[in-house]
Structure formats: structure tokens, C-alpha cells
Amino acid sequence: MIEIRLHGRGGQGAVIASKILAVAMFNEGKYVQAFPKFGVERRGAPVEAFLRQDNKKILIRSDIDKPDHVLVLDHTLIDVVNITTGLTKNGWILINTDLKPTDFDSLGSFRVACVNASHIAADLHLGSRNAPIVNTAICGSFAKCSGLVELASVCDAIKEEVPVKADENAEAATIAFKSTIV
């Protein structure tokens, strides 16, 4: 079983990201489970979402304490939340940032991937200027760095699940896939 934790802010689409990835993985024949950190969502507040992937039915029904990978939808959260809590050694930390992985050495012995999802989303007019919706870009980027899911599956899942600007969102995922720095 692979467990993934997503960190974001309310409105960025972390929960949807977890669902897009879940659907993409499900479509590749995996058993999946996606859920938000059960809380009261408020715009801008730090949120978490979780994603499990397995080859058989997933029976754990609690938060992910020991993620295999962590997705960070807003790099400023790193100062606010301890995003590495319980993270498996060698797990991927995918960060939405205009910086490079080497800029995050302080995070410790993890693999860091960077993608400028905000920029991609803003270019494609996803969300508003001051609150771009970066989740689809992150999903494409995660396909690149983790290899746990095909980009094509992610794009299909986006088209299935995102009700507006499905093509632009799929394009965001594709651009992110290509521009991810590992």
C-alpha cells in the first residue's frame, strides 16, 4: 500500500487533487481511497488530504500518519506546518514553488521535486490571480516524480472529475509533468 499526503490551503483544490489521483489510479486497476483531513475548510487555511493506493481493498479508515510521499501545494506552508511528519525515508516531497529542489535541503533526507504550478495555473487562467487553482498541475507533476500513475490516466481523470475548463486543467497537468524539476 502506498500512502500519500497532500498539504494545501483551502481553495487550492487539495481534496480534488487527491480524488483526481485516486480516480487515475483506480482507472489503472488499483484500489484507492481518498479523503480530506476531516475538518472545517476555510479559504486560505492550511488543509490536508490523503490518498491510499493498493492492489487490494483498503481497510484502514484513519488519517495517514506515515505517508510514503507528500505533496505541498503552497511552499509557504513549509514554514507553517511540519510537512515531513512521519514521511518515509526516500519519500518524495513535491512542492509547488519557483525554487529548485536544492533550495529545500533543510527538509532532510527526502527526495524533493519542484514545479511552478502556480505559474502554470495562472497562465491557463485556472482560478483567480491571487488564488490560482493548482491541483491539476500538481497531479501531473506527481505522475512525473513518483511514477505511480501515468500522465494519460491523470489527464483522463481530470476530464472525468473537473467540471469546468477540463482541457486547460489537463494541459496544466501535462505542462507540469514536463516542467517538474526532480
Partner: peptide
């Protein structure tokens, strides 16, 4: 059924 553990959890 349980709040969030089922209500908000996506699964096949």
C-alpha cells in the same frame, strides 16, 4: 455511516 471516514472518503 461514519462522518468523514465514509461520508467524505472516496473509494470505488
Amino acid at each position: 455511516y461514519d462522518a468523514f471516514f465514509l461520508s467524505h472518503t472516496y473509494e470505488p
